[in-house]
Simulated assay, not measured.
Amino acid sequence: MPQFPPQLPHGEFQEIFPDIFFLTGQIKVESDPISEFSRNMVVIRDGMDLTLVNSIRLNSAGLAALDHLGTVKAIVRLGGFHGRDDAFYLNRYQADLWTPEGMTFTRGEKTDQFLLDGQDGPIPGSSAFVFDTPELPEAILHLKCHGGILITCDSFQNMRGPDKYFNDHAAESKARLGFFKQAVIGPGWRKFAKPETNDVERVLELQFNHFLSAHGEPLLHDAYRAVALSVKGGDVS
């Protein structure tokens, strides 16, 4: 069996909306000192077909729960800083990998379908929003159900404070860098990917009420207002 990054702690699936599931787990960045913090995966079910967005490798009980939901058909990698566990799922399920153009890989993955701005995504009723200006690929999956749902990676985050997956170093550093804000434009993404202001502002052309990020809590029912406040009040240039 190919070697994949080790499985890390995670929680259980929550059904946020019918057929839309949310799971929080841990990511460990092998820096000095080591940084441990939380990340999220979204699973969308269409019939019995499953699409995994911002994948997290699950333990045996988690994989059994995933298989109980349906059959994994697609993996979506939205951001250049993510994708650690995609190869595990591609090997296990022979699913299609969807990414923005320009994505690079380290574990033999290849893009099967491109996420193209304004074009259909892997789920019926979904479309891709693709940023034009960052130095690394970054996209958002827009679902048109339930008044509109954005699924983001690093571009917009909703961490309100450290949770059980944080170590002390990550809690201190992310507080200092401004991560713990509602619907914040990702500080790390803003610093290293360098998106331009007018590119980020295009997000407000989408219709949505809810927002599920790779980092932070679900933001339900008031997401457009919160994102608009971040966009209009933030300096991302």
Rank of each mutant, 00 (worst) to 15 (best):
F13I: 07
I16R: 04
F17C: 07
D19E: 15
F21H: 13
L23G: 02
T24M: 09
G25Y: 06
I27E: 11
D32W: 11
E36G: 06
F37A: 12
R39K: 14
M41D: 04
M41K: 02
R45K: 15
G47R: 10
G47D: 13
D49I: 02
L50C: 08
L52R: 04
L52M: 14
V53T: 04
S55L: 08
I56M: 05
R57E: 01
L63T: 04
L66T: 04
D67C: 06
H68A: 15
G70L: 06
K73T: 11
V76K: 00
G79H: 03
Y89T: 10
L90P: 02
R92Q: 14
R92G: 05
Y93M: 09
W98E: 02
G102N: 11
M103D: 02
T104Q: 12
F105H: 09
T106Q: 13
Q113I: 08
Q113H: 15
L115K: 04
Q119A: 15
D120S: 15
I123L: 11
S127I: 03
V130P: 01
P134G: 05
L136P: 00
E138P: 08
C145H: 06
G147Y: 11
G147D: 10
I149M: 06
I149E: 06
L150V: 06
L150I: 07
L150Y: 00
L150T: 01
I151H: 02
C153Y: 02
G161C: 12
P162S: 09
P162A: 11
Y165A: 10
F166M: 12
F166T: 05
N167A: 08
H169N: 13
A175I: 05
L177M: 14
L177N: 14
A183C: 12
G186F: 01
G188H: 08
F192C: 05
F192N: 10
F192E: 04
A193L: 05
P195G: 03
T197V: 03
D199M: 00
D199L: 01
V203N: 00
L206H: 07
L206G: 00
F208C: 12
H210D: 08
H210L: 12
L219A: 04
D222P: 01
V227Q: 00
L229F: 10
G234T: 14
D235K: 14
V236F: 15
V236T: 14
